[in-house]
Nucleic acid binder design. Structure first.
Lengths: 158, 158
DNA sequence: AGCGGTCGATTGAAGCTTCAACTGAGTGTG
DNA sequence: CACACTCAGTTGAAGCTTCAATCGACCGCT
């Protein structure tokens, strides 16, 4: 039982602000997309990721990773997208285990329609208040934390 | 219909990383708290906020604001906390509209028990990978974005 | 005092996410 | 070839959040 290392004052201030961002930013974007495009943020990201692929398709596993979601969640999301015919499931011919999500023409259209509003929202909330230097610093810092979030299924402390 | 201002490459990189943090960090902390203390992150924050008050009580409205949650959500959270006797609701004698959430002795105990693990998780994920300068930059940048998230119920773009 | 408007809070339904259990396909080791 | 193991994906239940509707209390005018 080692002594608890609490946060320093500086760390506490930084953490409070980061926590506010981390808790409010998703809610804000969620609301904008839901209101203007009738889709959730995950759904948008899935469509966007698919549209970036040359053939508009990706295995669920990879979609999950790139969208920062669990595979289970992604499966549910794809089901919803499929119901609206924005995406179709297709078996992967090269591997019987994997399922491909394929972007439909309709899906591409709703994405194109939704994108400007979403980008405007992101720009308005995150980039407008930042200087160029801020953006560079943000990239560096978020990268370090994100890297940490990838790796450590390790034991909690130390 | 003005031309869409897409993100620059630099902005895109920063955004991708920020998005990863914003989407994964809450999930990570959520899991840690759920696993080790049987409570959600919001529940923890509510207990923590109450414990910081000299009299261990706060109106729901203020709790909601400080915990970055909607009032509705907070009401549900307090209901759950009340069921476990970690908090009690009490009418505010000075204003018939407001309800006070009051931390119970039990509530304080579970918070004390949960805190070290949570702080360790936060330190491990956000502060360990950061230099001192990073922390200062983070405070500045998160502050700017958080400020933006507070104000603008304004029209979406411009 | 009366009246509309705002404010704090509650509630229930709908929707999304998580978790754990499960299936079926591939891999590798004897 | 068989067995164990891993991997991708699916599914349903439980739980949490959101949204909209609702309520009573307070405020500001007249």
């Amino acid at each position: 039982m080692e002594p608890v290392r609490w946060l320093t004052d500086e760390e506490q201030r930084a953490w409070r602000r980061l926590a506010a961002v981390v808790l409010r930013l998703p809610a804000t974007l969620e609301r904008q997309l839901q209101r203007d495009a009738g889709m959730t943020h995950v759904e948008y990201r899935v469509l966007a990721l698919l549209s970036e692929e040359p053939d508009g398709q990706l295995p669920l596993r990879r979609l999950a990773a790139q969208a920062n979601a669990s595979l289970s969640r992604l499966s549910h999301v794809v089901t919803r997208l499929e119901e609206r015919s924005w995406v179709v499931r297709q078996p992967d011919p090269t591997d019987g285990r994997t399922t491909l999500a394929v972007l439909t023409e309709q899906g591409r259209e709703v994405l194109v329609a939704a994108a400007p509003g979403h980008v405007a929202a992101v720009r308005s909330v995150v980039f407008e208040p930042l200087s160029e230097r801020d953006v560079a610093d943000l990239e560096r810092i978020a990268g370090r934390i994100a890297a940490r979030l990838d790796e450590p299924p390790a034991t909690n402390n130390r």
